[in-house]
Structure formats: C-alpha cells, structure tokens
C-alpha cells in the first residue's frame, strides 16, 4: 500500500491539527468573556441585593441604602404600555402579511417598513418617540417611553406572527372554508388560535428585548428618583437607573447598579428562556431523556 510519509503529508496533518486548535481557541475566546459577565453580574449583583433594594426608593445623594422599587415598577409599567400598544397591532399586521393581499403593493411596503423598523438602532427609536410625544407635551413623560418600547416590540411581534402563520398548512384553511365559515373567521378562530403558542413566544421574546432597552428611554421616559404612576410625567426604569448609577461617582450607587443589572438579567433571560422552553418543549423533553440515557450508559 502507498503509505505516504512525505513531508507534504506531515504538513497537511499539522495544518489540520493547528486548525482544530484555532477553533478551540476561538470557542474559549468567546465563552470566557460571557462567563465573566455572567459571573460578575451574579456575584456582584446578588451580593448587593437585599430587601431594601426591592421595597425602598433611592436615598438622597450621599446617604447609603435605599433601593430601586420605583425603577422596577417603572420598567414593568413602561413595558406594559409598550406591549399594550404594539402586541395587538403587531399580531394584526402579521396576520395581514401572512394571510391577505400576498404580493400586493401595500403588503410589500408594509413588509419593507417592518424590515426597516427591525434594523433601526434603538437610539433612533428614542428620537422618534421624543419628536412624537416629548416635543408636543414639553416634558419627558412615561407615555413617550412606552411608545418608544412599542416601536421596538412591533416589528418583532409582526415578523414572529407572520412566520408562524406561514407554517400552518393550507389544508387547514381549506377545511374551515369547506365548512362554510367566512374566511376571516377561519383565520381568527381556527388558524390563529392554533398557532397561539408560537405567537405567544414571539410576543414574550419581543417583551424581553424591550425590557432590557436603555437607549430609547434616555430622553423619553427619562427617569426620576421617586415613585410616580403618572403617564404624563418622567418615569424611572431599571436600565436607565442602572446607567445613571453606573456612571455616578458614589460607591453605594455603583453597588446598586450591579444589583439592578442582576435583577434585569434575571427578568430578561428568564422571559427569554421560558418562552424558548415553551416553543421547544417536545425537543427539550427528548433532549433530556437522551441525555439521561447517555449518562446511564456511561455509568454502566
């Protein structure tokens, strides 16, 4: 047999090994900072949490203690406004794109607009909301923050709805129509509820994304240091509060920024992972049973 032991063959083997080494190095290069970020946020963040953090408002500058109750509630409030505006509109727009007027000029322009919104940097979204609501009301206000978040949520929900409805096979629609039910009812009462799980996941992903946004809130909801429920007044939010504390010179505020980051990451990743788990439930179950089998066979 022609066993090659030439230098060129050795060179090929070396290149192969070196390449695999590079891949492993790349993996380490990516995973290390991520582990560091997670570790830092968890250790520093969890360490600076206490009951006060959740139940108290900020203390005056210079005094130690106080919490972020107003910011946590503010974030929930702002995200709720954003979702209340964007989720129904987004789902309807998704239904329109998936079910009606395929390839008409209107649906093409809408599709383009949604693409455009998806790609707009979030800071520009802030400017949009500022022009729309802060300029006319002459004050930073919670409504503007909510609208800004709704502009973040809208395209994600629309695309998710559209993609999921496109997966529904046509024979389901035809079956409905064959029963003598009008088309709109077939869609709203058979097709859409049948895809509820998928649409719900899209909505949750969009909301988790919006909950972590800082840039669109900086000059819309702006932030404050006390509890406020007024929609026409500035409102605090977790990300903006973290930002303000992070760049402040006070050590206690910096500590609280880490606490805030920890809470924020738990909220955002929590929603994100839960909704992914919902959509991939079956896959997840398979995965774990396979893993169990593997571990068992290793033991045996």
């Amino acid at each position: 047999m022609m066993i090659e032991t030439t230098n060129y063959y050795r060179w090929r083997k070396f290149k192969n090994r070196f390449f695999q080494f590079l891949l492993i190095m790349a993996a380490i290069a990516v995973l290390t900072p991520i582990l560091l970020i997670v570790q830092y946020t968890f250790v520093k963040g969890a360490g600076s949490l206490n009951l006060d953090f959740f139940t108290n408002l900020p203390k005056p500058v210079g005094e130690v203690g106080g919490g972020m109750r107003h910011a946590i509630l503010g974030t929930l409030y702002l995200v709720a406004i954003g979702a209340a505006i964007a989720v129904p509109i987004g789902i309807m727009a998704g239904i329109y794109l998936a079910e009606f007027d395929k390839k008409s000029a209107l649906s093409r322009i809408l599709s383009f607009a949604i693409d455009l919104l998806t790609g707009v940097p979030s800071i520009i979204v802030g400017i949009f909301a500022y022009i729309l609501l802060v300029v006319p009301m002459k004050s930073f206000n919670a409504m503007a923050g909510g609208v800004a978040l709704s502009i973040i949520i809208l395209p994600i929900v629309t695309r998710a709805t559209e993609e999921i409805l496109k997966l529904v096979p046509d024979h389901i629609r035809e079956a409905g129509l064959a029963l003598g039910i009008p088309r709109w009812k077939v869609i709203f009462m058979i097709v859409v509820p049948g895809s509820f799980k998928g649409i719900f996941t899209g909505v949750m992903l969009a909301i988790s994304r919006a909950a972590g946004e800082t840039a669109p809130l900086l000059f819309t909801a702006f932030g404050n240091m006390y509890m406020s429920y007024r929609i026409d007044q500035p409102m605090a939010s977790l990300p903006v509060q973290i930002y303000n504390y992070a760049i402040s010179p006070f050590e206690d505020w910096q500590r609280q920024a880490w606490g805030g980051a920890f809470v924020l990451i738990i909220i955002v990743l929590g929603i994100n992972l839960t909704s992914r788990a919902i959509i991939n439930r079956n896959e997840l179950i398979n995965f774990f049973s396979e893993l169990k089998k593997k571990l068992n066979s290793k033991k045996a």
Binding site: Y40, R209, A211, T214, P239, I242, I265, N272, E290, K294
Partner: peptide, 29 residues
C-alpha cells in the same frame, strides 16, 4: 450534537443580555 446545542444556546444568550449590562461590565471589568 447535544453539546453543540447547549453551547450554541449559550452563545445565543449573549444576544439577549441587555446592552446596559455589557456597559456596566465594560466600565468595571
């Protein structure tokens, strides 16, 4: 495949971490 899936999810999670958390880590670490 199974390990690739886990680590892949891990990498994708980076995209879900809010930008402000990266900033905070950036300043202090």
């Amino acid at each position: 495949a199974w390990l690739g899936k886990i680590l892949g999810l891990f990498v994708e999670m980076i995209a879900a971490i809010p930008s402000i958390v990266f900033g905070l880590w950036g300043i202090y670490y």
